[in-house]
Simulated scan of single mutants.
Amino acid sequence: MHFKNGSTAYADLVIAADGANSRIRPYVTNIKAFYTGITMVEVNVFDAAKAIPHIYTLLNGGKVMAFGNGKNILGGQKGNGHLGFYLSIKAKEHWTKDGGPDFTDRTQLLVWFKKEYSEWSSVWHQLIKNAAMPAIPRLIYCMPPDQTWEALPNITLLGDAAHVMPPFAGEGANTAMFDALELSESLTSGKYNTIQEAISNYEINMCKRAATAAQRSLENGERMHSEGALQKIMAVFNKR
């Protein structure tokens, strides 16, 4: 392993847990994530109790999921009193570069928001007017749910490096933690003759689990950005 600071390390096994843009994943597979058609613009409001008291009170220490006209506003309170929100929309993959607002400019961002969310209450304008700059556009990608590859004897993947997925089922971090548990059990169980066999067992199960979570995330994303989203999402919750 060659690191940015010039150092080098040797290992019998490399576990890539380096996120959605993993530098190690290409050594395992050439399968790439696809753009889901959804972009989320992250905005944060500091000292929200003073900056946006109406919305701060609405959250009451919890979270909010607002749906309407194929768009979402998703947010929640942080432990330090700040609020974090995502403005979630259907958009072309390169819209942020081709005609999108300057995300460092609050005035431009507010103009864009008023146009994009024109059917929404003006109470939400407070988010942009009081947001810390820059806002951060986050394009939402997903690994193909049917991805598979041949296990290697000295490299494996976990978390987003293995199966980045949309956040709309709340399973990304849970799946990653289960990856770590299942990988450690495969490597230490004594059931397998080689590390490669242990990795193969882990990766087969991991891909199956991740496929289920990713498919649920994709389906929820479509529901949340469709007409009648509120009713559709409530129906999902009511089934549980």
Rank of each mutant, 00 (worst) to 15 (best):
D102G: 09
N130F: 06
I155D: 09
A51T: 06
I89H: 02
A162H: 00
R138Y: 01
G75D: 13
L58A: 15
Q108G: 10
N154E: 13
H82T: 03
T96F: 07
E42V: 00
H54F: 14
A131K: 02
F34E: 13
D47V: 04
E119I: 03
A131R: 07
L127F: 02
G76C: 08
Q126S: 15
D146G: 07
M65D: 06
G19D: 00
N154S: 13
P101I: 11
G37I: 03
A49E: 15
G68P: 05
L87P: 01
I140E: 04
G19V: 03
I140Y: 05
W95L: 07
T107E: 15
L109D: 11
T36Y: 04
E150I: 12
G62K: 07
K92M: 10
A48W: 01
W120L: 08
V64Q: 13
W120C: 06
L109Y: 12
P137W: 04
V164A: 15
G61Y: 06
K90D: 06
N130V: 01
G100F: 10
I38R: 09
E42A: 13
L87C: 08
T39L: 14
P101Q: 11
L109K: 13
I89M: 15
G79W: 04
N154D: 15
N69Y: 11
R106E: 15
K129R: 10
A135W: 05
F85C: 10
G84L: 09
T29R: 09
G37M: 07
F46D: 14
I155K: 10
N69L: 02
V43I: 15
H82S: 07
G99Q: 12
A151I: 10
A66C: 01
K97F: 11
S22T: 00
M143N: 06
